[in-house]
Design a protein around this nucleic acid. Structure first.
Lengths: 341, 341
DNA sequence: TTGTACGCGTTATCAC
DNA sequence: GTGATAACGCGTACAA
């Protein structure tokens, strides 16, 4: 058993160098002669050395840890975002300590304490239980994604532009009325831009429109029932008129599409539908659903790039305090499929 | 700026205790008088102390880190599994260091080295790029989930039983022929049990059956095309006979269901379909798809329980070497929905 | 109940 | 180019 771990001390004795030289071998190899490098390299193999980054962190203060707090992973959006964030390891070299908070603020605070105890250098926040003012008080580089971000840096989808694109697409398909279906939430959430974008576009172009804002349910069954209600309502209110539906997520879009399709065996010509997110369901639906695709890979990359910049600044001898919060917006991409033709 | 971090030393001076007493306050508070506890508690607030677990780890060797290597997160199965694993933090207290390897063995080895450098106490492996024999050689508590597991501990779905349940359900709906559609993979993957379960059940009950094993495509478009081919093939080979389809994933099941539904405006009576995984698509399909639900929460919990047991054993003064690998099987749950009625 | 002294494995600061 | 030595922040015999 190789239970006893090999340290710089062991290597030093084995090679008749000092600990310092061994350290230099790793951090500044050029300062050793090539022969000595080889000697040490061989010793590492002979002894079966294994790095201990914890000791390194304790000594130099750079943990290379980034904390992530994410609400859940059953929503494809979050899963894909985490996917893309983790994928930046190859580029930036930071390791990720991931916590899931199901929306409980107190839990989230505990997680942050735990992250702080592990000396994370920065944090990416996707959850929304804690107000940004409080997050900012931790005095740690923080980048948020798609949440209230007044006092912290952020990278968000340009929801407004996404809504404008979606609304414009619907308006081109000769709809008599446009309807935006969304849940109710605060105005400081980036996603609120979808509502504004829809309204502004309709008003600017004098398009008849309606906003349906209500709780849209969570379980598939709930969602189905509520969508059925909305469908009935629209049929009554706008009989034999072409209705252009801008649904706030692909899940809702799919649900109402299914209801229509099961009634007619196709998408009734009275309806046009566009979703949001470009989640898998949009492509796998009975009729591929037009949608607004968030550039999750780009958002994740920009968030990391921004965070790395902030963390680097902090490592300088004389770090400049950050004056203004940075808020980046990533333009989404309109994806035209069969529900808007 | 509170740049200078407060240490036990500062607290000791502030309270006129020794570092040891401060340490004991955290690790064995009962050994102090209540009054002294209060004094220290107050000092922590006054000074704004913040734990440093890295220093603690270096001193006592217990990192409370678990490494996770997961192939991706765009498959709902993996996302949900990670979801459930992360959720065990509240129960077991272990922190997770997550890496994504997109199936590259060399990359995976680098990740393992990195994990080892951070002194993880154990590892959960969901990826399959590295053979279990090699993983075992790291001499670290390891639990794998749903992959080749000859030389390591594992927790897997009882794929065989799942297939038996699915096949039995199909056989009860008066099918003339049962067909299992799956991709091709090695026999030492747990999912191979699905093929065996299907075949055995058919043979035991003298049911006419066919196995379609081939590459089933990856992009939605590819999948669609291949499913269309299979659909044509089945129609030619078994005209006007009722075909019971056991698809290896819900994604495939949904794809072929869509093809049929778009042709008939409903699920033709010539077809019965069951999928596998109980992924969201199964519930959101045009017709809710019957499926075999993996108990992901249970699998994750059992994996952690097993891993914690192994890690605890290792912390004992005289750890018993593990002789036999432990392989747990979790029975999946048959979910009857509308495609098998 | 509390304190002393040393160890954990690495880096940083001086020297030479 | 290389080496002592002192940090880094905490745990733990052992002693008192």
């Amino acid at each position: 058993m190789d239970k006893k771990k090999v340290t710089f001390n062991d290597i030093a004795k084995y090679t008749n160098f000092s600990k310092t030289t061994i350290s230099r071998y790793f951090n500044n190899p050029d300062s050793l002669t090539v022969e000595n490098q080889d000697i040490i390299a061989q010793a590492l193999i002979d002894l079966g050395y294994q790095k201990n980054k914890l000791a390194k962190v304790l000594a130099n203060g750079k943990s290379e840890f980034i904390g992530i707090i994410i609400p859940n992973l059953y929503l494809h959006y979050y899963a894909e975002m985490l996917n893309q964030i983790l994928s930046t390891y190859k580029t930036f070299g930071y390791k990720f300590l991931v916590f899931m908070s199901r929306g409980n603020a107190e839990t989230e605070r505990e997680y942050i304490q735990e992250l702080l105890a592990y000396k994370i250098e920065g944090m990416i926040i996707l959850s929304h239980a804690i107000p940004s003012s409080e997050l900012a008080s931790y005095n740690l580089p923080i980048v948020s994604i798609e949440r209230e971000d007044q006092y912290i840096n952020s990278v968000n989808t340009d929801n407004y532009m996404g809504a404008v694109q979606a609304t414009s697409l619907l308006s081109k398909s000769d709809c008599d009325v446009l309807v935006h279906v969304n849940s109710v939430f605060s105005k400081d959430i980036p996603a609120y831009g979808r509502i504004q974008g829809f309204e502004d576009t309709c008003k600017e172009n004098n398009i008849r429109h309606e906003l349906i804002l209500r709780d849209l349910g969570h379980s598939p069954q709930e969602i189905h029932n509520i969508m059925a209600e909305i469908y009935e309502y629209l049929n009554r209110k706008y009989p034999s008129q072409r209705k252009g539906l801008f649904m706030s997520t692909d899940t809702y879009a799919n649900s109402i599409l299914n209801i229509i399709f099961r009634e007619y065996g196709s998408l009734s010509d009275e309806y046009r539908i566009i979703g949001f997110d470009d989640s898998p369901i949009a492509a796998q639906a009975i009729l591929p659903i037009s949608t607004v695709g968030q550039q999750i890979d780009k958002i994740a990359y920009e968030a990391m790039e921004l965070l790395v910049m902030l963390m680097d600044e902090r490592k300088k001898r004389r770090p400049k305090p950050q004056i203004e919060r940075i808020h980046k917006k990533i333009t989404p991409i309109l994806i035209r499929r069969e529900t808007t033709e």
